[in-house]
Structure formats: C-alpha cells, structure tokens
C-alpha cells in the first residue's frame, strides 16, 4: 500500500468542513449532556420520591439501549411522533440525551461525596439549597469528578462518528465517502483514526492541565 497524500490534500475543503461538523456536534452534545445531567443529578438529590423514580427510569432506559438505536428512533422514528428534526439537530439532541445519563451519574456520585455535615452547617445558617449547590457542593465535587468528566467527554467525541449513519456530514461520513469514491479505504480510515486520536489527545491534555490546576487547589488545602 502506497499512501497517496493527494487523496487528502485535494479534498482538504471537504475534510475541514467535516472536522467542523464533528467539533460542533461534539461540543454541543457535551454542553447539552452536561446541562441535562447536572439538572437530573440536582433533582435526584433534592426531588421527591416520584420524581426520583421517574429520573431513574429515564437513566435506565437510555443506558440500556444502544446509541445507534436511539438515534434511529429520534431521526427516523421522530416524524411518526410529530418530531421532525434536521439531521444535525437530531444528532446533537441524541448525543446530548445519550451523554446526559452518564453525566447525571457522575454528578450524582459527586453530590454524594460531600459530607452531609457540611450541608447541615449551611442549613443551620440559613443558606439555601441552591446556594449550597453552587457555593459548597459543586466547587468541591468538580475536583473529584474531573477525571470521570474528561473520560466521558472523550467517549462522546468518538460517538460523533455514529452520527454519520443519520446523514450528518461529519468527519467519519466525509472520510468514508472519499474512501468509497477512490477505493482507498485503508488510507482514509487511517487518517480518520489519526484525526480522532489528535482530538482525544488534545482533550486529555486539557483535562490533565485542569487536574493540575485543581491539584494546586488541593495542595493549598493540605499544606
């Protein structure tokens, strides 16, 4: 196999568009998943029994079904429920919902890791639950859950490849397209792998940087 770089250079425009779509769906999916996940976790910690049971059901349903099937349901099955979405919108929504349950579980364990006594102390001083979340629980738990969050963010990066199935022109769709046009399957797939590797490596580095910042915070606490 001789790698022909013109395969890539001639299609650089398409490829960078694909990369942009990948980044867009990834970031939007992560933002949405984290927001829904945090909301679920907060409601699980402070909501009533019925709400908790409902959220538990949502988490179990999403966790127990493949992402691909969820996407099909949302994009191809959506219109039968009166839900007609553009492919990219459906993709971001799907990724957000899929990610939300894992974000929720990470945030929930984070909330549970803060000793109850700290909250009782806040309670006795008249500090509201919302203030408690923002001022006392989140700052402490982010330190603990950061590695798990970074891990989930990298997983969601790779899951964007699945979005090609519902016709979203992201990187995997573009590269496999080039592959089937030129029959250079292996080369294009290898380049695709390297592209994901770079993205994941970058986000891991960012994660490590944040962990070190956080580490300084921890050191300040214990010296």
């Amino acid at each position: 196999m001789i790698f022909d770089p013109t395969l890539i250079t001639e299609r650089l425009g398409d490829i960078s568009n694909g990369l942009l779509v990948t980044l867009e769906t990834w970031f939007a999916g992560v933002a949405m998943g984290a927001a829904i996940g945090l909301l679920i976790a907060v409601l699980q910690v402070f909501g009533g029994a019925w709400l908790r049971a409902l959220l538990r059901l949502y988490i179990e349903l999403i966790r127990a079904t493949p992402f691909l099937v969820q996407l099909f349901l949302l994009y191809y099955g959506g219109p039968s429920f009166g839900l007609e979405l553009e492919a990219t919108t459906a993709g971001i929504l799907g990724l957000g919902i899929y990610g939300s349950v894992y974000f929720a579980e990470i945030f929930r364990t984070g909330f549970e890791s803060i000793p109850k006594g700290q909250l009782e102390a806040a309670d006795c001083l008249g500090i509201t639950r919302l203030q408690c979340i923002w001022r006392i629980q989140l700052p402490q738990m982010l330190v603990l859950i950061l590695p798990a969050l970074v891990n989930l963010v990298t997983i969601l990066c790779k899951e964007t490849a699945v979005l090609s199935i519902i016709t979203i022109p992201e990187l995997t769709m573009v590269m496999t397209g080039i592959g089937s046009e030129t029959f250079a399957f292996v080369e294009t797939l290898l380049v695709l792998c390297v592209a994901y590797l770079v993205l994941i490596e970058l986000s891991s580095r960012l994660g490590l940087f944040l962990e070190r910042r956080v580490g300084r915070f921890l050191q300040r606490q214990s010296t």
Partner: peptide, 26 residues
C-alpha cells in the same frame, strides 16, 4: 447557632470565607 462534633467547616473556603459566607449570602 449550631456547633458540630466534626466542625463541618467548608474545606474549599478560607477560614474567613467560612465565617463570612452566610453573612454575605443570607
């Protein structure tokens, strides 16, 4: 005012921050 066996200070805030938190927020 309540004082606990395990102190229950907020470890991510400075000593002064612990004392002023409720004054400022509440």
């Amino acid at each position: 005012g309540m004082v606990f066996q395990q102190f229950n200070l907020w470890p991510h805030m400075s000593v002064l921050g612990n004392v002023t938190e409720a004054l400022i927020r509440v």
